[in-house]
Each structure stands twice: as C-alpha cells, then as structure tokens.
Design a protein around this nucleic acid. Sequence first.
DNA 1: CGATATTGCTTGATCGTGCAATTTAGAATG
DNA 2: CATTCTAAATTGCACGATCAAGCAATATCG
Lengths: 204, 204
Amino acid sequence: MADKVRRKAPEKRRLRLIEATLTAFDSHGLAATSVARVAALARVSAGNVHHYFGGKDGLLEAAMLHLMGELHAASLDLLASAKGPLDRLDAFVEANFADAIFTRAICRAWLHFWAEAPHAPELARLERLNRQRNRSNLTAALRQLMPLEAARDLAEEIAATVDGYWAQRAQATSTVTPAKARLLLKAQIRRGILAAGGTLPSTR
Amino acid sequence: MADKVRRKAPEKRRLRLIEATLTAFDSHGLAATSVARVAALARVSAGNVHHYFGGKDGLLEAAMLHLMGELHAASLDLLASAKGPLDRLDAFVEANFADAIFTRAICRAWLHFWAEAPHAPELARLERLNRQRNRSNLTAALRQLMPLEAARDLAEEIAATVDGYWAQRAQATSTVTPAKARLLLKAQIRRGILAAGGTLPSTR
DNA sequence: CGATATTGCTTGATCGTGCAATTTAGAATG
DNA sequence: CATTCTAAATTGCACGATCAAGCAATATCG
C-alpha cells in the first residue's frame, strides 16, 4: 500500500486525526463519520487525510492500529511484573479493563471495527491478529494449569466474555464499570481453573 | 410514529425488504447498505422503503425488531418445556445458539445494531429492551439457585459471554460453532452455580 | 531558496427523500 | 359473471446535500 511521497510525516498531525476519528465514532457512529467531519474535528483540511493515510480506509486502519497499540502496550506493562500463570491471567484482565482502556468511547470504536472488519480486508487482518494474540496469551497461561484442550476451551470462554463486556460498555445505559468487570472476570477465571482440576497457586 | 395512509400493508413486501437489509449487512456492511442497494436486492423500487418504513431509519428499526422477534420466539418455544431453573437456563442457551439463530449473517446484523444503537434513539430503545429481557430471564432462573446478588453477577457474566460469542461469530475466520458455544456456555453456567454454593438439581 | 506540509476547491458519484404518475387489485355495480 | 371504478400499491425520477478523492496553488520552515 505504500507511502510514495511521504518522507517524515509529523506524528502529531496523524495522531490528531486518529483521535478525531475515534471522537467521531463515539459521538456520531461509523455511518456518519466522513472524512470531512473528521478533518473538521481535527481542525485540518480534508485533503490532509489523503496525504497522511492515503484515503478513508487508511485512516480507519490507522485508528484501529492505534487502539491495538494502546492495548498491547498496557498488556506488556502489566505482564512484565507477572510471576506465575495466574498473575499473567490477572494482568491480562487488568490490561483489558484498565480505567483508561475500558472506556465508553474506546469500546464503541472497537465495536465499529468488529462490525466493519468482515467487509474490509485490512481491518479483518488486524482483527484476526489481535484475536489470535489474545487467544495465544490466554492459552499459554492456562496451559500451565490444566490440559491443553481444557485450556483452549477456557481461553475461548474468557475471550468471549471480555468481548461481551466491551460490547455492553458501548451502550449508553450500560452499568458495567472497569472495576466490576475486573472482579467478575477474575472470579470467572478462578472458577474455570478449579473446575479443570487445577490448583490456584496462591490467594491474592 | 404513525401510519397515516397505510391500511393493510402486504407483509410479504415488508419481509422481503427486511431480509434484503440483513443480506446487505452480511455481505457489504452497514456503511455500504444504502436504501437503493436494499431495494435492488429485494427487487423493489427504492421509493417503496419510504412507503413501508417511512425512511431508512424505519427500515433498520424494523430489521432489528425482526431479529428480536425471532430470538424471542425461539426462547418462548424452548422455555415452554422447561421444568426447573436449570432447565430454563439451558433453554436460554439453546435459544440463543440454535443453529438457525446463531448464524454468521445474523450475528453480523446484531453487531451492526449494537454499534449503531448509541447513535439512534430508537435502536437504543430496542437494544435496551432486549438486554433487559435477557438479564431478567437469567436472573429469575439463577435466583432460585443462589442469593440475589450472586444471581445478578452471574447473569451479567453469562449475558456478556453470550454477546461475546455472537461478536466472534461475525468474523470471517471465526471457528465458534453453535454446538461448541452451547457446550461451553452450559458448563460455564454450572460452574457458576456450584461456586455460588448452589446444587445442580439433576444431571442432564 | 527549495522542499515539504497544508490548503481549498473541483469533480463525479451516490446518498436519502419526496412526489407525481402509473399499475394493480378488489369491491361495487349492472 | 362481466365491467367499472377507486383507492392502495408501486414505480421511476428529480432534487439538494454530501460523499471520497485528486490536484494545483499556497504557506511554512529549515
């Protein structure tokens, strides 16, 4: 897809446009998010979008990539200090439901990406990457506490529940808070481990 | 919002347009679903949409209502033969993941509705209704097996997991099958009941 | 001064919507 | 039963707005 002329694009502008995209998603939805609106939100000319991102598609991809980057960074941070498998699972939960991550606006953006991914190859690629990364992290940790098959099943269940809380958080009347989601999810994980015959390494 | 002149609108046409909408969602996404495209899919003039639904918004609302109706019908069917609380929970799972309901196309449509609901009051109303109905069904059954607070928490968890499987199913590379989702979810429910100190009425 | 960043406008296509005209179907009439 | 009539059903088009995109001109800054 190629940057032809772009040499050293000021990251500031790019970021402003990406943030404007997410703001537009939050307040007006995907269908009403036009290049013109995003550019106006970022106080930038519409033509700029094509300079930086090559078009609307590129802008959406960059926005999704941005969200993935933030989530990944939070995961790496928290995983760094994790000692055992259960710690790694807790770190996963805390990253996915950190107060700065599990936001109404961000959850709405993810929902839009999930909805559009099946119809945009590049978004689909990113979604697949993100999903496989999550699945792999979960399975790797669970595997040390139970047989592989059980680990895979529980990873599937946990991943689905995470997505579900995200989807619910996007709704205006949602009552799911970050703290509540963390609490429920950690309990769910522990139940899953115990039921699989695993032992909880320590009470935390 | 009033049918002024419409007396007995042929349900056949309405249904054709609704199904065309869902087909368009499945194959092209929300952003690319225009009135013209839907009308063409249904082999009907575009102006027809305004006769039957009063506009694009009305069409989307009717499509969402249609999906809710199908889900509700499946639930009622299965709940009718449920004997105890665990039976009711299993019926809930089987309705939400019936082979005819847990379809890639239908899950994609739900995903689009969830994504757009925050920006369309009428869709938001329907989404809220549907969510509260599900929550209420789950809590009512769980309440007979554990204290109210625990029942509410578990209902929240189950509802989120259901939504999560739906979101995953919408992706092109998803491997979640109806049977697998039913299996995993029933196990998750039983784990939740046992952990809350409840007893499983019978093995099934 | 020269290259890069940024703008503002144009273009052609497509959108949702409203409306006048036409077709259709069923009740009323002979 | 055949014919007429009328209102509902349906069409096709035209309208104004808005879209993504491309490009030539201008501004900015090292």
